[in-house]
Amino acid sequence: MTSSAHELAIDVRDLEHGYPDGSSALDGLSLQVRPGERVALLGPNGAGKTTLALHLNGILLAQHGSVTIDGLPVVEPNLAEVRRRLQLVFAKADDQLFMPTVRDDVAFGPANHGMRGADLDAAVDGALAAAGAAALAKRAPHHLSTGEKRRAALATVLAMNPGTLVLDEPTAGLDPAGRNELVALLKTLPQTLVVITHDIPFALQLCHRSVIIDEGRSWADAPTADLLADRATLGRHRLALPFGFDPNVLAQATSIDRSR
C-alpha cells in the first residue's frame, strides 16, 4: 500500500478503548486529518487525548473501530511502517530521551532502521538543526532544561523523517519565552501536525483548526478562532480562556496562518 496526496494523513473511526478496570477512555471517537494540516486537540484532563495519541502509532491497538495512517491500517503487521510515517512527542520528554547523549538519542531511530556512517550523521545533524537542538548534541539529557529536553525530543522523532507529528502537551512546563520559541519552530516544520493541549493561546497561535475532545468523544470541530469565541461550548468541557484573553481581538492582531 502506498500513500498519496488525496489520502487522509490520519483517519480514526468509531475508536473505543476501555481499561481493564472497566472504565472507558475512548468512546466512539472519530477524527480525520488531511496531509499538511495543523490541528489542535483540546480537552480537559482525562478526556482521552493521550489514549488517542497512543493509538495513532500503534502503542495501543484499536479494541473497536479503526485507525488508519496514510491509508495504512494501524494493525500489528503494519506497525513498523506506521511508525515511519507518524511519530509521537511524549508529554514527558524524559521518557523519550533514554540514551547517554542527545546525539546518540537522535541517532537511535535511524540506526534501528539500518542507517550507518555518513548517512546517519547527516540525518542526525538535519534533525538537530530542524528542532533547534544542534547546540545540545553532546549534552546528557538529564542535564537539560525542560525547553531543551522538548527540543531534543522533537529532534529524535524528526530524525525518523515522519510525515505526521503528534505532540502531547508540548507547552507543559515551558516558560512564556520557551513557548513562543516552540510555536515559531513548529511553524517551520513541513509535517502534518496534531497538537494535544489545553493551552488555548498556543492552539490559536499554531493551529487553524481545533477539535474538542471530552469523555472519549469529539464534541466540536471548527476553526480555532471560531471555537474559542464559543464560550458556552468551551465551558462545558472545562476549557477556560486565560484571564483577559479575548480571542476575537487576538485573532485579528496575530498573524494566524489561515491557509492551514
Binding site: L54, N57, I59, A80, R83, R84, Q87, L88, F90, K92, D94, D95, Q96, F98, D104, A107, F108, G109, A111, N112, H113, R116, L120, T156, V157, M160
Partner: peptide, 22 residues
C-alpha cells in the same frame, strides 16, 4: 516510566537489538 521508555524505543523502530553507539 520503563514501560513508557519502551514505547518510545519501539516507536523508533527498536526490536530488542541495541544499535551501534558509534
Amino acid at each position: 516510566r520503563g514501560e513508557r521508555v519502551h514505547h518510545a524505543m519501539a516507536a523508533r523502530g527498536f526490536t530488542g537489538t541495541p544499535p551501534d553507539l558509534n
